[in-house]
Design a protein around this nucleic acid. Sequence first.
DNA 1: GTCTATATATGGATAGAC
DNA 2: GTCTATCCATATATAGAC
Lengths: 206, 206
Amino acid sequence: MTQNKVSTEEIIKNAAMEVFVEDGFDGARMQKIADKAQVNKAMLHYYFSSKEVLFEKILIEACGEMLPELTAIIKGEQAFIDKLKAFVRIHIRQQLKNPKLVSFIFRELNKNPERMASQLNNLEVMKTAYTDFMNSYKLEVEAGKMHAYSPAHLFIMIQGLVDYYPLSKPFYCAFMKYMDEAVEELTFEEKLIDQTCLLLENALKK
Amino acid sequence: MTQNKVSTEEIIKNAAMEVFVEDGFDGARMQKIADKAQVNKAMLHYYFSSKEVLFEKILIEACGEMLPELTAIIKGEQAFIDKLKAFVRIHIRQQLKNPKLVSFIFRELNKNPERMASQLNNLEVMKTAYTDFMNSYKLEVEAGKMHAYSPAHLFIMIQGLVDYYPLSKPFYCAFMKYMDEAVEELTFEEKLIDQTCLLLENALKK
DNA sequence: GTCTATATATGGATAGAC
DNA sequence: GTCTATCCATATATAGAC
């Protein structure tokens, strides 16, 4: 017998996610969360003892939402370059579904790197994904098919390419307006994906 | 007769810069700023009517500090690829001098894109730098020396490559520890610069 | 479990003496 | 210009009825 009515706790967590992601920890107000969840403030403290505790829970969930269906791709049997392209495509698309989430993570991360570090075990997935991915890259290099980069640095550069635009999208939207360049958002973003794949292909293939 | 004693106003602004960059607008406390400036809170309101006003001033200065000596480079007479490399080198080094500043800008930007947009006239420099830079790229493409990318997208990708690491440095420091990889920070970062130049060169040159 | 009412703390801002 | 003391709004958190 499944519980098809969402529990109050779940409702609160969903509301809290929205508010924290929008306003950050410091900017978030318990009242706003309560309003959005359509309960009163006392309820928040009933389910989660404090703002801090509630935030911790949200942060963990938020990190989880960042780790996408990427693992499957990376473990797949495709050629390295195809895996990479799939990674770029899916990663950018996913980040763009909720760009606020990306900037939220970065914001809180920079404010409290230790807190994030203490939750790094969530990244066990990321760790293995990273090693798998880089191993298949090394094979390509050894086979003389690709240019050799330092794996760690290549990893960061790829992340930069896929994370940067979602992170700074609000800025570029404003910037485009300022430059009087009317751009159709979706087309622009799909093209960014293509261009990123192209750039990486040119940069890697010998 | 020069005033070699720094004015109280200046002292406050310096303190405010530190605190706002560290804690963000919402997290910043007027008391903390006053303490750091070794004045009392009333002084802050004497020189700057409100927290909001003080913050605006700081934000403008912070944006100014982000626009580096880059313009000179971009206007120089070097070949495009050399300008690009110089840009990468100087930009990353500069961001790394104060990585907190970068994440501060992004944080406040994402919270209030309109505010940043209203100050976009500060970016007149950026606008001309951008067009100059891209024009010389187009010349290379027309001469058949470089791969053709969409200039706007290339611009974003380059920014991603040079901004991403400074922005997420705290994360990678934690991540490296987690991966048990002892890295010497400065060496790592200089190598990142080299690798970025290499990647761009491979991606662009035909 | 859910609500109202309230305690307690803190932060931004002001008044007014010097 | 600089200080002390204080106001006032707001935020988190709790007590206690239902």
